[in-house]
């Protein structure tokens, strides 16, 4: 998976933005400090993954899930992250649900239109095809995650 060592780095621009947003305005962050935090973040991901994996193994599961990650935070003494993480998880689930409903709604709308003009219908079908392709891509991505 990670063929080059730089694949294990996180994008500096994003890391810098997160640091800047966390610190008071006008604080100077040395270049060395930025790259150190970035490295620390990669190590954090590995450490969290390894802890979460232990919980998955204890539960005789092969796939890491949300509760494994939350248990890992507790184990790593980052309990302070648990509440915001649970909130993020709720938000993520709502977002996923919203997306699903939106695509179902689109399908319903399309069904209603089946009686309308031939031209309109074909245009709709084109859109539908695009969506299906997108969904397929998403599915592939998820399979990728599971492998």
């Amino acid at each position: 998976m990670a063929e080059r060592p730089e694949d294990l780095n996180l994008p500096n621009a994003v890391i810098t933005r997160i640091i800047k947003e966390a610190l008071p305005d006008g604080v100077n962050i040395s270049k060395e400090a930025r790259s150190a935090i970035s490295r620390a973040a990669s190590v954090f991901v590995l450490y969290a993954t390894s802890c979460a994996n232990n919980f998955a193994m204890k539960g005789k599961r092969k796939t890491l899930n949300a509760s494994d990650v939350l248990s890992a935070m507790e184990e790593m003494e980052f309990q302070r992250f648990i509440t915001p993480l649970k909130e993020a998880l709720e938000a993520y689930r709502r977002e996923q649900k919203g997306k699903k409903e939106a695509s179902e709604q689109k399908k319903k709308d399309k069904d209603k239109k089946t009686d309308s003009e031939e031209q309109d219908r074909s245009r709709d079908e084109d859109n539908e095809e695009d969506e299906e392709r997108l969904e397929e891509e998403e599915q592939n991505e998820e399979e990728d995650v599971d492998n």
């Binding site: 092969k62 796939t63 995650v145």
Partner: peptide, 11 residues
């Protein structure tokens, strides 16, 4: 071996 999407987002 594998990571589900929620675990990935949380991490």
């Amino acid at each position: 071996s594998s990571i589900n999407q929620e675990a990935l987002v949380l991490t």
